[in-house]
Design a protein around this nucleic acid. Structure first.
Lengths: 113, 113
DNA sequence: CCAATCGTCAACTAAATGGTTGAATATGGG
DNA sequence: CCCATATTCAACCATTTAGTTGACGATTGG
């Protein structure tokens, strides 16, 4: 079954989880490596990954004792489509996009004390 | 200040609030009228509207004793832009969009007993 | 003016969320 | 085989969330 919009938007509502998604843009990662830049416990990150997984935003594949996390960008499709209904077609402003991604990459909760 | 992505996505994560946004696509509405199709109390809807308002997704203007709620689609821009970063440019599939909006309009929580 | 309407506030509840720690379960390497 | 590594589980805690009800303040219309 496809995850509900509830689940997808709720998953996206947490800055730690969005930061994880941004990290996974680069490459697939093991759970431990995902957790590394954050100040919270591995167990907490593991929970966040479960939430992202249930939302369909990532997939996790266990190879050996390592569980690899992979971005599943298609899951954003439903949410994206929902948002299009509010006339956001012209939202694809690359300038804004770049500024935004930049703040998201420089700002995020990893080491946010 | 512009509402955070946290606030916007969290606001979108609730089906009642998404249903309210869909209702407001049609036209501006008074709080009481927004509440009408739902089974929950007026106070509950009032709280939902506050959350949508803080997220910048709607604006509220009081004229006389009636408070009018108006969709503010621009607020979705940041969230939309964020999602574009995951390669969703081809997500604007009108077929999927129409199917989706349809289910959202026929399914939603109003009178969901 | 006064009653009815519109909407919020305050106080409360139940459940969900995001975090912790410590133990438990796989798995792999030397 | 055994220890270290990788990850989750279980129990717990504090905070937030979504809802309720009843009282309250503001406004309007007859």
């Amino acid at each position: 079954m496809t995850p509900s919009l509830d689940t997808i938007f709720a998953a996206l509502a947490d800055p730690t989880r969005r930061a994880i998604l941004v990290m996974l843009l680069e490459d697939d990662m093991a759970v431990t490596d995902v957790a590394d830049p954050f100040e919270m416990s591995l167990a907490a990150i593991s929970k966040h990954l479960t939430i992202l997984s249930r939302a369909g935003l990532i997939s996790q594949e266990k190879r050996g004792r390592v569980k690899w996390c992979k971005l599943e960008p298609d899951a954003l499709r439903d949410a994206s489509i929902w948002m299009q209904s509010f006339g956001q077609f012209e939202a694809v402003n690359l300038d804004a996009f770049e500024r935004f991604l930049e703040t998201e990459l420089s700002d995020p909760p990893p080491a946010n004390d």
